[in-house]
């Protein structure tokens, strides 16, 4: 009996040693015949899921050794669960990476509870989209320009206290002095649009431009919707004449707050790997990511799905996250206050 246990242990040790050997391989050979899991912090069918599944269908071709990519949904707590899991539990050898909500990395900074990670330690692979959101008013309300928001009250719909639809108008009210009234609790963005149609709310603040473009292309042309302001760090090429929120600030403090809040837009559909990956493997994943996002058949499929693809390199995202975490504490405090 004792003998058998010893043999068993020996076999396991051998297995372990074999595992170690595999880990030490150079990155290029590492992925041969491997399976890479792409974790999605939301359930099947949502926006992040569609982007991730599209990437999963193509990125395998661009990683040397052509591993199989398996998309796996691990939903919960608005993808905070996945962020924690990637940080603490996921294998740190490049066989697992994932996608989470763009605001999640900044949760710890903003005093959110439940986050158990340091965002700058993740290996950021890149973002599939540099998201530009907008504030819109329903044309019939007569509100057509951003300036009017300083004088008139505009009722905007929100989907919940921690959603963009609530955070964005609240910060603009708190920092710039606009007078938007947020009515929150709608189950989803579509419900706000419907409420706008029935005149229950007058506008929506924090609506992705690409989604307006695909779902309601006529509304902008015929004036059903008025675009008031763009919410991101830079303007979208489609809308040269719509003002950018960053141009509305008057002081450096205001600029800091806006930068803190809207930086997430640049990493609109972020992909990230656990901390502690070998440097060459991070480089390899980042390159594969960019190659995929420029791949013709990938772009053709994205076009079919009406997904906006504006690749942001992993290095850029990494730098941005680090930069945001260097925000002076008084500006962070000011932002948190504005959100209350």
């Amino acid at each position: 009996m004792k003998n058998r246990t010893a043999t068993g242990l020996a076999v396991l040790v051998l297995f372990g040693a074999w595992g170690m050997r595999v880990q030490a391989q150079p990155a290029a050979e590492f992925y041969k015949g491997k399976q890479v899991d792409l974790y999605i912090g939301y359930s099947t069918g949502g926006g992040y899921d569609i982007y991730a599944r599209l990437l999963a269908r193509h990125i395998g071709r661009h990683i040397p050794g052509n591993p199989t990519i398996v998309p796996r949904n691990m939903e919960g707590a608005g993808s905070l669960r996945l962020a924690n899991w990637l940080y603490k539990v996921a294998p740190k050898d490049g066989t697992a990476f994932g996608t989470i909500g763009r605001g999640i990395p900044f949760d710890p900074l903003m005093g959110g509870k439940g986050a158990q990670f340091k965002a700058s330690e993740f290996a950021w692979i890149g973002s599939a989209n540099d998201e530009v959101s907008v504030c819109v008013s329903w044309g019939k309300t007569g509100i057509a320009r951003f300036d009017e928001l300083y004088k008139k009250v505009m009722i905007v719909g929100g989907t919940g206290a921690t959603a963009d639809t609530d955070l964005f108008p609240k910060v603009m009210n708190g920092v710039l002095g606009t007078k938007m009234r947020v009515i929150t609790g709608y189950p989803g963005g579509n419900d706000i649009t419907l409420a706008m149609q029935r005149g229950e709310v007058q506008g929506r603040c924090g609506w992705s431009w690409s989604s307006i473009k695909t779902n309601h292309p006529d509304w902008v042309k015929d004036g059903t919707l008025k675009l008031l302001v763009q919410l991101s760090l830079e303007k979208h090429p489609d809308m040269p004449n719509v003002p950018l929120i960053m141009d509305m600030v008057k002081t450096e403090e205001q600029r800091g707050v806006m930068r803190l809040l809207f930086a997430r837009q640049v990493m609109g559909r972020p992909f990230l790997a656990p901390p502690g990956l070998p440097a060459d493997r991070i480089a390899l994943l980042r390159k594969a990511f960019m190659d995929t996002l420029n791949d013709k058949s990938f772009l053709a499929e994205a076009d079919k799905l009406k997904l906006e693809i504006t690749p942001v390199a992993g290095e850029r995202v990494q730098e941005l996250v680090a930069e945001i975490y260097r925000t002076p504490p008084d500006i962070v405090k000011r932002t948190i206050e504005a959100l209350k």
């Binding site: 919960g76 707590a77 905070l80 924690n84 439940g114």
Partner: peptide, 12 residues
């Protein structure tokens, strides 16, 4: 977070 018993599972 209402009655979530300190667990992320109950957040949603």
């Amino acid at each position: 977070a209402r009655w979530t018993l300190d667990s992320l599972y109950l957040w949603e």
